[in-house]
């Protein structure tokens, strides 16, 4: 089944993927930010579904989750906001969420809605690969979605191979084993990990996330991987000023 994620991966290098939290900074910013990201040159977008207790996120994204929930964001409202998105945005859209809001909505219903509005994939950081394979993979594939799984320098080779085998898009490469704050050894850690992965000859391309904050760090990771994902740095930038569209445009200028 064709999927926009695969199409982009096949047609481009140095893929710039941007994460933002739905309903942040204002409730109705979701669609505006999506449209502006496409206009200003992003290649792929991760739509963050806010959760009250995200454990895999640092303080910036946590805060954006809290604000979005206070704004009234919910899974149902997000799908309502995304209806018609395919008339305005053609980039691959990946829904990134903690597992709990998805299973309360209904895992299958969530996937069905993703297909309906035209989302292409899922990133569920707290859904480990074994649980994914045994409980959820069939459903994800039934709705033509791609599930993207994280790997880190501390993931074993066996685990990385298992993830590669059950992935059909890209693998989310966490740049370093120590994930937040300023990592002094960012480039050495990352390069060592990238070289280890190159030697493994995986079938899926790698897109790097965590610790990428600007053009310079983006260029660094794309030397060794298919693309880079910017999360916290964009979430911080989008809330600067009163106009999320202008803030998005300003942030993206560096990458033009």
């Amino acid at each position: 089944m064709s999927n926009r994620i695969n199409t982009v991966l096949e047609s481009k290098d140095n893929i710039l993927s941007i994460y933002f939290t739905a309903g942040y900074p204002k409730l109705d910013d979701t669609m505006k930010v999506l449209v502006e990201l496409e206009r200003s040159g992003a290649d792929m977008i991760e739509v963050g579904v806010p959760f009250s207790d995200p454990i895999a996120d640092g303080p910036t994204i946590q805060h954006s989750n809290t604000v979005a929930l206070d704004n009234g964001m919910s899974v149902q409202l997000l799908f309502d906001q995304l209806s018609g998105v395919r008339d305005k945005v053609s980039l691959p859209l990946i829904m990134m969420s903690s597992l709990n809001p998805i299973i309360q909505y209904g895992f299958e219903q969530f996937c069905q809605k993703c297909q309906e509005v035209g989302a292409d994939g899922l990133i569920i950081p707290d859904l480990p690969v074994e649980e994914y394979i045994s409980e959820y993979k069939d459903v994800v594939e039934r709705y033509g979605l791609r599930n993207i799984i994280l790997i880190t320098p501390s993931s074993t080779d066996a685990r990385i191979r298992l993830i590669d085998e059950h992935t059909d898009s890209f693998i989310y490469m966490v740049s370093s084993a120590a994930t937040t704050g300023v990592n002094k050894n960012f480039s050495q850690d990352f390069e060592a990990f990238a070289k280890r992965l190159q030697a493994m000859n995986l079938k899926n391309p790698l897109v790097t996330g965590f610790g990428i904050k600007d053009k310079e760090s983006f260029d660094q990771v794309t030397k060794f991987s298919k693309g880079g994902i910017i999360g916290s740095a964009f979430v911080k930038a989008v809330a600067e000023g009163d106009d999320a569209v202008a803030s998005t445009a300003k942030f993206m200028r560096e990458f033009a």
Binding site: P125, D126, P128, E131, L150, T152, S154, S155
Partner: peptide, 10 residues
């Protein structure tokens, strides 16, 4: 079960 991010896996 163990529903943890990959970063905690090791």
């Amino acid at each position: 079960g163990a529903f943890i991010p990959e970063m905690m896996q090791a």
